[in-house]
């Protein structure tokens, strides 16, 4: 593939493929291009969250909500397919990588928990995605066309999460408590969203401010308070973007990949 020079190209020098090294390194270095790093990070976010939301099928509290969550999951799967195809072969990337090769945020791999827990995850992540895609859509990177389409989808995801946060937080004592628990439990995974990503030319500190303002407004309208703990675990030596994942992710991957790995190349 030819490296398309983007104006905002990161300082990482792209080695010109010399004939000697070209054949041996053809596959691997291509993935390390900033644009591919970005596509892989965002694509993995979408793929993993899509799978988590898919786990609600047959288990959602009501039929209408099951369809809503499945719709959101399918939007995300569509985004994942486009993004992973930018980074390589989509099936190979989705089904044949080991845990350490995934670049998704730890937030999106967290288990569903109860419905409020899922909504808390949706609120945190869809707000981030809406702000990020909004900026990417107005930029000139190779992700701009995808972002322009996806921003409409994720704006709806954010609205869905917001509506439910308001109703659960400002609902019964039980729903209020569950919503609070969900927001608290996932808070420590939110800091990672604002780590700069190679190939994404966005001011992540400004993104953090907009995100905090937006999420705070919703949480306070829901009669809850913003968790006051740290936004990352003190013990982590990096996080999802570096390929370090939490324990439940391995089990999720095993389920997601086992069919493809058991029957390579199967189709119907």
């Amino acid at each position: 593939m030819t490296a398309t020079p983007t104006p905002a190209a990161a300082p990482t020098p792209t080695p010109a493929p010399t004939s000697a090294a070209a054949s041996a390194q053809a596959a691997a270095p291509a993935r390390a291009l900033p644009a591919n790093v970005a596509a892989l990070a965002l694509g993995d976010d979408a793929l993993v969250l899509s799978h988590r939301l898919g786990e609600w099928a047959g288990h959602a509290p009501v039929l209408e909500e099951e369809v809503a969550l499945a719709n959101i999951a399918l939007d995300l799967l569509g985004q994942a397919r486009v993004l992973l195809s930018l980074a390589g072969d989509e099936d190979e990337l989705a089904y044949l990588r080991e845990e350490r090769a995934f670049r998704n945020l730890q937030l999106v791999e967290q288990p569903n928990g109860d419905f409020a827990h899922t909504i808390a995850r949706q609120l945190y992540f869809s707000t981030y995605q809406t702000l990020l895609y909004g900026q990417l859509a107005s930029g000139e990177s190779e992700l701009a066309p995808l972002a322009a389409k996806a921003v409409k989808e994720v704006t709806y995801h954010q609205d869905h999460a917001e509506q439910w946060t308001l109703r659960l937080g400002d609902g019964t004592a039980e729903s209020h408590e569950r919503m609070r628990r969900g927001l608290d439990a996932l808070w420590r995974f939110t800091g990672e969203m604002f780590q700069p990503v190679d190939g994404i030319d966005v001011d992540f500190e400004a993104l953090r401010e907009s995100w905090t303002a937006s999420v705070t407004a919703v949480i306070e309208r829901a009669t809850l308070s913003v968790p006051d703990g740290p936004q990352s675990g003190a013990w982590t030596a990096g996080a999802g973007r570096q390929g370090l994942h939490t324990e439940p992710f391995g089990r999720m991957l095993a389920e997601m990949q086992h069919l493809h790995r058991s029957h390579p190349g199967a189709s119907w």
Partner: peptide
């Protein structure tokens, strides 16, 4: 919420 569910269904 009815409006949103209608959108999805």
């Amino acid at each position: 919420m009815a409006l949103r569910n209608a959108r999805d269904l």
